[in-house]
Simulated scan of single mutants.
Amino acid sequence: MESVRFKNKDIDVAADLRFPPGFDSSKKYPAIVCGHPISSCKEQTAGSIYGERLAEMGYVTLAFDASYQGESGGEPRYLEDPAARVEDFRCAVDYLVTLDYVDEERIGALGVCGGGAYAANATMTEHRIKALGTVVAANYGRIMREGDMSPNAAVATLEAIGKQRTAEARGGDPVITTYIPPSVEAREQAGLTDVDVVNAVEYYTTPRGQNPNSPNKLRFSGLSAALGFDAFHLAEVLLTQPLQIIVGDVPGGFGSYRDGFELYDRARSEKKNLFVVPGASHYDLYDKKEYVDQALEKLQAFYAEHR
Protein backbone atom coordinates (compact mmCIF):
# COMPACT_ATOMS: atom_id res chain seq x y z
CA MET A 1 0.00 0.00 0.00
CA GLU A 2 1.14 3.56 -0.75
CA SER A 3 -0.22 6.73 0.85
CA VAL A 4 -0.74 9.46 -1.74
CA ARG A 5 -2.42 12.84 -2.14
CA PHE A 6 -4.26 14.44 -5.01
CA LYS A 7 -5.96 17.78 -5.49
CA ASN A 8 -9.64 18.72 -5.35
CA LYS A 9 -9.22 22.37 -6.31
CA ASP A 10 -7.07 23.74 -3.45
CA ILE A 11 -7.72 20.80 -1.11
CA ASP A 12 -5.20 18.01 -0.63
CA VAL A 13 -7.13 14.76 -0.63
CA ALA A 14 -5.45 11.92 1.26
CA ALA A 15 -5.72 8.44 -0.23
CA ASP A 16 -4.33 4.92 -0.04
CA LEU A 17 -3.25 3.11 -3.19
CA ARG A 18 -3.30 -0.67 -3.09
CA PHE A 19 -1.73 -2.93 -5.66
CA PRO A 20 -2.39 -6.44 -7.01
CA PRO A 21 -0.13 -9.33 -6.02
CA GLY A 22 3.03 -9.37 -8.11
CA PHE A 23 2.46 -5.78 -9.16
CA ASP A 24 4.64 -4.68 -12.08
CA SER A 25 4.65 -0.94 -12.78
CA SER A 26 5.56 -1.58 -16.42
CA LYS A 27 2.17 -3.22 -17.01
CA LYS A 28 -1.34 -1.77 -17.30
CA TYR A 29 -3.97 -2.54 -14.65
CA PRO A 30 -7.65 -1.81 -14.22
CA ALA A 31 -8.37 0.50 -11.29
CA ILE A 32 -11.24 1.12 -8.88
CA VAL A 33 -11.91 4.29 -6.88
CA CYS A 34 -13.32 3.42 -3.43
CA GLY A 35 -15.54 5.89 -1.57
CA HIS A 36 -16.15 5.58 2.16
CA PRO A 37 -19.44 5.83 4.10
CA ILE A 38 -20.81 8.93 5.77
CA SER A 39 -18.68 9.69 8.90
CA SER A 40 -16.12 7.06 7.87
CA CYS A 41 -12.54 7.20 6.58
CA LYS A 42 -10.31 5.40 4.11
CA GLU A 43 -8.89 3.09 6.80
CA GLN A 44 -12.29 1.52 7.45
CA THR A 45 -14.53 -0.57 5.21
CA ALA A 46 -13.96 1.20 1.87
CA GLY A 47 -10.19 0.78 2.03
CA SER A 48 -9.24 -1.97 4.45
CA ILE A 49 -12.04 -4.34 3.42
CA TYR A 50 -13.23 -3.63 -0.14
CA GLY A 51 -10.15 -1.82 -1.41
CA GLU A 52 -7.87 -4.53 -0.03
CA ARG A 53 -9.90 -7.43 -1.37
CA LEU A 54 -10.34 -5.89 -4.81
CA ALA A 55 -6.59 -5.32 -5.00
CA GLU A 56 -6.10 -9.01 -4.25
CA MET A 57 -8.37 -9.69 -7.25
CA GLY A 58 -6.07 -7.80 -9.60
CA TYR A 59 -7.11 -4.16 -9.38
CA VAL A 60 -5.23 -1.04 -8.41
CA THR A 61 -7.54 0.52 -5.82
CA LEU A 62 -7.63 4.09 -4.55
CA ALA A 63 -9.50 4.70 -1.28
CA PHE A 64 -9.65 8.35 -0.25
CA ASP A 65 -10.77 10.49 2.68
CA ALA A 66 -13.50 12.95 1.73
CA SER A 67 -12.53 16.60 1.53
CA TYR A 68 -12.76 18.31 4.95
CA GLN A 69 -12.58 14.93 6.69
CA GLY A 70 -10.06 12.35 7.87
CA GLU A 71 -6.50 13.06 6.75
CA SER A 72 -7.66 15.18 3.82
CA GLY A 73 -7.40 18.95 3.92
CA GLY A 74 -10.12 21.54 3.68
CA GLU A 75 -11.58 24.16 6.00
CA PRO A 76 -13.82 24.26 7.89
CA ARG A 77 -13.32 20.78 9.34
CA TYR A 78 -16.01 18.10 9.72
CA LEU A 79 -17.97 19.42 6.76
CA GLU A 80 -20.30 17.02 4.93
CA ASP A 81 -20.43 18.75 1.54
CA PRO A 82 -22.14 16.73 -1.22
CA ALA A 83 -20.64 18.79 -4.04
CA ALA A 84 -17.12 18.32 -2.69
CA ARG A 85 -17.64 14.62 -2.10
CA VAL A 86 -18.84 14.11 -5.66
CA GLU A 87 -15.93 16.15 -7.01
CA ASP A 88 -13.55 14.00 -4.94
CA PHE A 89 -14.43 11.06 -7.20
CA ARG A 90 -13.74 13.05 -10.36
CA CYS A 91 -10.43 14.24 -8.96
CA ALA A 92 -9.54 10.68 -7.97
CA VAL A 93 -9.98 9.72 -11.63
CA ASP A 94 -7.84 12.71 -12.62
CA TYR A 95 -5.12 11.29 -10.39
CA LEU A 96 -5.42 7.72 -11.66
CA VAL A 97 -5.06 8.73 -15.32
CA THR A 98 -1.64 10.23 -14.50
CA LEU A 99 -0.34 6.83 -13.39
CA ASP A 100 1.38 4.94 -16.23
CA TYR A 101 0.34 1.58 -14.82
CA VAL A 102 -3.40 2.40 -14.80
CA ASP A 103 -5.44 1.62 -17.92
CA GLU A 104 -7.59 4.72 -18.31
CA GLU A 105 -10.21 2.75 -20.25
CA ARG A 106 -10.70 0.38 -17.31
CA ILE A 107 -11.48 2.60 -14.33
CA GLY A 108 -14.41 1.71 -12.09
CA ALA A 109 -15.91 3.07 -8.91
CA LEU A 110 -17.18 1.49 -5.72
CA GLY A 111 -18.92 3.23 -2.86
CA VAL A 112 -20.19 2.03 0.51
CA CYS A 113 -23.21 3.58 2.29
CA GLY A 114 -23.23 7.35 1.65
CA GLY A 115 -20.11 6.85 -0.45
CA GLY A 116 -22.13 4.57 -2.70
CA ALA A 117 -24.74 7.23 -3.35
CA TYR A 118 -22.05 9.85 -3.93
CA ALA A 119 -20.32 7.42 -6.31
CA ALA A 120 -23.56 7.02 -8.25
CA ASN A 121 -23.98 10.78 -8.52
CA ALA A 122 -20.38 11.24 -9.63
CA THR A 123 -20.61 8.47 -12.21
CA MET A 124 -23.51 10.23 -13.93
CA THR A 125 -21.22 13.06 -15.01
CA GLU A 126 -17.86 11.25 -14.96
CA HIS A 127 -17.93 8.85 -17.87
CA ARG A 128 -14.29 7.96 -17.49
CA ILE A 129 -15.79 5.69 -14.82
CA LYS A 130 -16.74 2.65 -16.87
CA ALA A 131 -18.51 0.53 -14.24
CA LEU A 132 -20.13 1.36 -10.89
CA GLY A 133 -20.61 -0.85 -7.86
CA THR A 134 -22.49 0.20 -4.73
CA VAL A 135 -22.71 -1.55 -1.37
CA VAL A 136 -25.63 -0.49 0.86
CA ALA A 137 -25.72 2.89 -0.90
CA ALA A 138 -27.66 5.42 1.17
CA ASN A 139 -28.85 8.77 -0.14
CA TYR A 140 -27.65 11.19 2.54
CA GLY A 141 -29.88 14.00 1.36
CA ARG A 142 -32.95 11.83 1.84
CA ILE A 143 -31.78 10.79 5.30
CA MET A 144 -31.33 14.42 6.28
CA ARG A 145 -34.69 15.49 4.88
CA GLU A 146 -36.53 12.75 6.72
CA GLY A 147 -34.89 13.58 10.04
CA ASP A 148 -37.16 12.35 12.83
CA MET A 149 -39.86 11.56 10.23
CA SER A 150 -42.08 14.45 11.37
CA PRO A 151 -43.84 16.36 8.54
CA ASN A 152 -41.82 19.52 9.05
CA ALA A 153 -38.46 17.92 9.88
CA ALA A 154 -36.48 19.27 6.92
CA VAL A 155 -37.78 22.83 7.17
CA ALA A 156 -37.24 22.91 10.94
CA THR A 157 -33.66 21.74 10.45
CA LEU A 158 -33.01 24.38 7.80
CA GLU A 159 -34.36 27.08 10.08
CA ALA A 160 -32.07 25.91 12.88
CA ILE A 161 -29.11 25.87 10.49
CA GLY A 162 -29.92 29.42 9.42
CA LYS A 163 -29.91 30.63 13.03
CA GLN A 164 -26.58 28.91 13.65
CA ARG A 165 -25.02 30.45 10.53
CA THR A 166 -26.20 33.87 11.73
CA ALA A 167 -24.58 33.24 15.12
CA GLU A 168 -21.31 32.21 13.50
CA ALA A 169 -21.39 35.20 11.14
CA ARG A 170 -21.57 37.39 14.22
CA GLY A 171 -18.54 35.72 15.77
CA GLY A 172 -20.15 32.82 17.61
CA ASP A 173 -18.56 29.40 17.95
CA PRO A 174 -19.50 26.64 15.49
CA VAL A 175 -21.69 23.79 16.68
CA ILE A 176 -19.93 20.46 16.16
CA THR A 177 -22.47 17.70 16.60
CA THR A 178 -22.22 13.94 16.05
CA TYR A 179 -23.51 11.63 13.35
CA ILE A 180 -24.46 8.96 15.89
CA PRO A 181 -24.51 8.58 19.69
CA PRO A 182 -20.92 8.67 20.97
CA SER A 183 -21.07 5.34 22.79
CA VAL A 184 -23.13 2.22 23.30
CA GLU A 185 -24.16 3.57 26.72
CA ALA A 186 -25.34 6.88 25.21
CA ARG A 187 -27.39 5.04 22.60
CA GLU A 188 -29.00 2.85 25.25
CA GLN A 189 -29.78 5.86 27.44
CA ALA A 190 -31.42 7.56 24.46
CA GLY A 191 -33.57 4.47 23.87
CA LEU A 192 -32.45 4.08 20.24
CA THR A 193 -33.02 0.52 19.06
CA ASP A 194 -33.15 0.67 15.27
CA VAL A 195 -30.82 -1.97 13.84
CA ASP A 196 -28.81 0.54 11.80
CA VAL A 197 -28.26 2.85 14.76
CA VAL A 198 -27.34 -0.05 17.04
CA ASN A 199 -24.85 -1.41 14.54
CA ALA A 200 -23.47 2.02 13.63
CA VAL A 201 -22.58 2.73 17.24
CA GLU A 202 -21.02 -0.71 17.60
CA TYR A 203 -18.99 -0.30 14.44
CA TYR A 204 -17.74 3.24 14.91
CA THR A 205 -17.31 3.51 18.69
CA THR A 206 -15.86 0.11 19.62
CA PRO A 207 -12.69 -1.73 18.52
CA ARG A 208 -14.74 -3.41 15.76
CA GLY A 209 -14.23 -0.45 13.41
CA GLN A 210 -13.10 2.52 15.50
CA ASN A 211 -10.44 4.73 13.91
CA PRO A 212 -9.06 8.15 14.95
CA ASN A 213 -9.63 9.50 11.43
CA SER A 214 -13.36 8.87 11.90
CA PRO A 215 -14.08 11.04 14.96
CA ASN A 216 -17.91 11.18 14.70
CA LYS A 217 -17.90 14.98 14.33
CA LEU A 218 -20.19 16.97 12.06
CA ARG A 219 -20.36 20.73 11.47
CA PHE A 220 -24.03 21.60 11.91
CA SER A 221 -24.01 24.93 10.06
CA GLY A 222 -22.73 23.24 6.90
CA LEU A 223 -25.67 20.89 6.47
CA SER A 224 -27.99 23.03 4.36
CA ALA A 225 -26.46 21.78 1.11
CA ALA A 226 -27.00 18.16 2.17
CA LEU A 227 -30.71 18.77 2.80
CA GLY A 228 -31.12 19.97 -0.77
CA PHE A 229 -29.13 17.11 -2.31
CA ASP A 230 -30.58 14.07 -4.06
CA ALA A 231 -27.80 11.65 -4.99
CA PHE A 232 -30.01 9.93 -7.57
CA HIS A 233 -31.22 13.06 -9.37
CA LEU A 234 -31.04 12.54 -13.16
CA ALA A 235 -30.02 8.87 -12.83
CA GLU A 236 -32.71 8.04 -15.39
CA VAL A 237 -30.99 10.39 -17.85
CA LEU A 238 -27.24 10.29 -17.14
CA LEU A 239 -26.39 7.04 -15.34
CA THR A 240 -25.71 4.78 -18.31
CA GLN A 241 -22.68 2.76 -17.19
CA PRO A 242 -22.96 -0.88 -16.05
CA LEU A 243 -24.24 -0.94 -12.48
CA GLN A 244 -24.03 -3.49 -9.67
CA ILE A 245 -26.10 -2.66 -6.58
CA ILE A 246 -25.70 -4.69 -3.37
CA VAL A 247 -27.95 -4.41 -0.31
CA GLY A 248 -28.79 -6.55 2.70
CA ASP A 249 -32.32 -7.84 3.21
CA VAL A 250 -32.59 -6.54 6.80
CA PRO A 251 -33.98 -2.99 6.42
CA GLY A 252 -32.97 -0.31 8.90
CA GLY A 253 -33.50 3.35 9.57
CA PHE A 254 -30.74 4.57 7.25
CA GLY A 255 -32.73 3.23 4.29
CA SER A 256 -30.09 1.59 2.12
CA TYR A 257 -32.46 -1.27 1.28
CA ARG A 258 -35.06 0.98 -0.34
CA ASP A 259 -32.40 3.29 -1.79
CA GLY A 260 -30.90 0.29 -3.56
CA PHE A 261 -34.21 -0.49 -5.22
CA GLU A 262 -34.75 3.18 -6.08
CA LEU A 263 -31.35 3.47 -7.72
CA TYR A 264 -31.97 0.27 -9.66
CA ASP A 265 -35.33 1.52 -10.90
CA ARG A 266 -34.08 4.99 -11.83
CA ALA A 267 -30.74 4.15 -13.45
CA ARG A 268 -30.70 4.34 -17.24
CA SER A 269 -28.00 1.66 -17.36
CA GLU A 270 -28.86 -1.13 -19.76
CA LYS A 271 -26.67 -3.52 -17.80
CA LYS A 272 -27.67 -3.36 -14.15
CA ASN A 273 -28.16 -5.85 -11.36
CA LEU A 274 -29.50 -5.69 -7.81
CA PHE A 275 -28.14 -8.33 -5.45
CA VAL A 276 -29.81 -8.76 -2.05
CA VAL A 277 -27.62 -10.51 0.52
CA PRO A 278 -29.83 -12.76 2.67
CA GLY A 279 -29.73 -12.11 6.40
CA ALA A 280 -27.47 -9.07 6.14
CA SER A 281 -28.12 -5.69 7.72
CA HIS A 282 -26.49 -2.47 6.55
CA TYR A 283 -23.39 -2.74 8.76
CA ASP A 284 -23.00 -6.48 8.27
CA LEU A 285 -21.84 -5.57 4.76
CA TYR A 286 -19.10 -3.33 6.16
CA ASP A 287 -16.96 -6.06 7.67
CA LYS A 288 -18.80 -9.31 8.50
CA LYS A 289 -16.96 -11.92 6.45
CA GLU A 290 -19.91 -14.18 5.65
CA TYR A 291 -21.75 -11.25 4.05
CA VAL A 292 -18.80 -9.31 2.64
CA ASP A 293 -17.61 -12.45 0.85
CA GLN A 294 -20.94 -12.68 -0.97
CA ALA A 295 -20.77 -9.02 -1.95
CA LEU A 296 -17.21 -9.33 -3.21
CA GLU A 297 -17.97 -12.48 -5.19
CA LYS A 298 -20.67 -10.53 -6.99
CA LEU A 299 -18.42 -7.50 -7.47
CA GLN A 300 -15.56 -9.65 -8.76
CA ALA A 301 -17.77 -11.10 -11.50
CA PHE A 302 -19.24 -7.68 -12.29
CA TYR A 303 -15.96 -5.81 -12.67
CA ALA A 304 -14.38 -8.71 -14.58
CA GLU A 305 -17.23 -8.59 -17.10
CA HIS A 306 -17.03 -4.85 -17.60
CA ARG A 307 -13.30 -4.16 -17.38
Rank of each mutant, 00 (worst) to 15 (best):
V102N: 05
V97M: 05
E87H: 06
A84E: 06
K28D: 08
K7H: 11
E43I: 04
V13T: 11
V60M: 01
S25E: 15
V102T: 07
E105K: 15
E56T: 10
D103I: 07
V86C: 00
A31D: 01
V4M: 09
L17V: 11
K28W: 08
P30A: 11
I107S: 00
I38C: 07
I107P: 03
S3K: 15
P21E: 15
Y29M: 10
A83E: 11
Y59I: 02
K42Y: 08
S39V: 11
F23N: 10
A14F: 14
E2P: 00
A55S: 14
R85L: 03
V102K: 06
T45W: 06
V60Q: 00
R5A: 12
D88C: 01
R85I: 05
G58N: 00
C113K: 06
R85K: 12
E105N: 15
A46M: 13
V112K: 03
R18E: 11
E43D: 13
A63S: 15
P30I: 00
G74V: 10
S72F: 10
S25P: 14
L54N: 01
S39K: 08
Y50K: 06
G58I: 04
R18A: 08
D103F: 05
G70W: 11
Y95G: 01
Y68T: 10
L17R: 10
C34W: 04
A83R: 10
E52W: 08
G22M: 08
P21K: 12
V86G: 00
E71Y: 13
V112D: 06
A14I: 10
L110C: 08
F19D: 07
F89Y: 14
L62R: 01
L62Y: 04
V86T: 10
I38E: 03
A14Y: 15
I38K: 01
L99C: 13
P21L: 13
T98H: 11
S67P: 12
E104V: 15
V112F: 07
D100L: 05
V102S: 07
V86S: 03
C41Q: 12
Y68D: 09
D103K: 07
F64C: 00
G35C: 14
S26L: 12
S26K: 14
S3M: 14
F64I: 09
P37L: 06
R77P: 13
D65L: 09
